[in-house]
């Protein structure tokens, strides 16, 4: 069955959910991804997204053992994301020189905890779908949560655009203008953590960070300012996501991996052309 036919087939609601999730995720990848890129906190977002596996593993384990019956993986993911964000936030603001070490430790410890819990979970638990995403698992609840987060991110990015731009461009100067740069950073980090948790169903925790940086990086080459970068990155994300979904459907491939490969290929191609032009 062709992708278009499947999209309109009433017996296949998961295809429509997948496309809808792709559209909603593109707004987060575009707007939030541009901010994460210009603020150069992609590494922090990467550590949070990987630490989240610990929470997912914990939730699956507790639910399977009937210790917390029916605990959804997303609850464990949020628990670990919040804690990882708090730790990274404190270290970034109070002990910047330790930031690298803490990021790498969180990254590895989070994933290891997740793998241990999943190994000890009775029955079969497949970590692959959490690591690399499975868009066919996107539920209506996920879509509602993504839509709410989209609205929050758009409203905050519009209202506090000057503060976001100023702290990303020159944090010290923004402080001299009375901008609460630490608060801007902590709110951004928290929202990125929540976004990572919600987006991991789409592309998986390993690849969510790629989608937060590749479309924004590609858009950066064509944009005159941060707002233009956000719009272009959203359009690029949309193109990459829909192309990825279409190709993965037609060729029966994992969608998250295809989406990231399309995004990565375009980014590398554009970068190569740009370097050639400058040379």
């Amino acid at each position: 069955m062709s992708f278009i036919a499947a999209l309109f087939d009433p017996s296949m609601p998961f295809v429509r959910n997948a496309v809808l999730a792709g559209v909603l995720a593109s707004i987060l990848f575009g707007v939030l991804g541009s901010i994460v890129t210009v603020k150069r906190i992609a590494g922090l977002a990467g550590a949070i997204s990987h630490a989240v596996l610990g929470g997912i593993g914990l939730a699956i384990f507790l639910a399977a053992k009937n210790i917390v019956p029916g605990m959804p993986p997303i609850a464990g993911a949020l628990l670990f994301a919040v804690n990882a964000t708090a730790l990274i936030g404190v270290v970034s603001l109070k002990a910047k020189q330790r930031e690298d070490t803490v990021i790498n430790a969180l990254w590895a410890i989070g994933m290891s905890i997740g793998i241990l819990f999943i190994a000890k979970t009775p029955g079969y638990a497949d970590p692959m779908s959490y690591l690399f995403g499975n868009i066919l698992l996107v539920s209506t609840r996920d879509i509602i949560l993504l839509a709410i987060l989209d609205v929050i991110v758009i409203v905050l990015a519009w209202r506090f655009y000057p503060q976001i731009e100023a702290t990303a461009f020159d944090e010290e100067f923004s402080r001299t203008r009375g901008v609460p740069a630490d608060t801007v950073f902590l709110v951004l980090l928290s929202i990125t953590a929540i976004a990572v948790v919600l987006l991991q169903t789409f592309v998986g925790i390993v690849m969510v960070i790629a989608m937060l940086t590749l479309p924004a990086g590609t858009a950066g080459y064509f944009s005159k300012n941060l707002s233009g970068m956000m719009v272009s990155a959203t359009v690029f994300s949309l193109i990459f996501s829909l192309t990825g979904l279409l190709v993965s459907w037609q060729m029966d491939l994992p969608s998250g991996a295809v989406v990231v490969l399309v995004a990565g290929a375009v980014f590398l191609l554009v970068s190569a052309l740009r370097i050639r032009k400058l040379a």
């Binding site: 210009v38 150069r40 506090f160 000057p162 503060q163 731009e165 100023a166 990303a168 461009f169 020159d170 100067f173 923004s174 203008r177 009375g178 901008v179 609460p180 950066g220 944009s223 005159k224 300012n225 941060l226 233009g228 970068m229």
Partner: peptide
């Protein structure tokens, strides 16, 4: 200024930052 040369911003927008006060 630890400026990232891939940051897309025009001269006018940089100067506008000087008008910013708090939130």
């Amino acid at each position: 200024m630890n400026f990232d040369s891939s940051f897309p911003i025009s001269v006018e927008e940089v100067v506008k930052m000087g008008r910013l006060v708090g939130l």
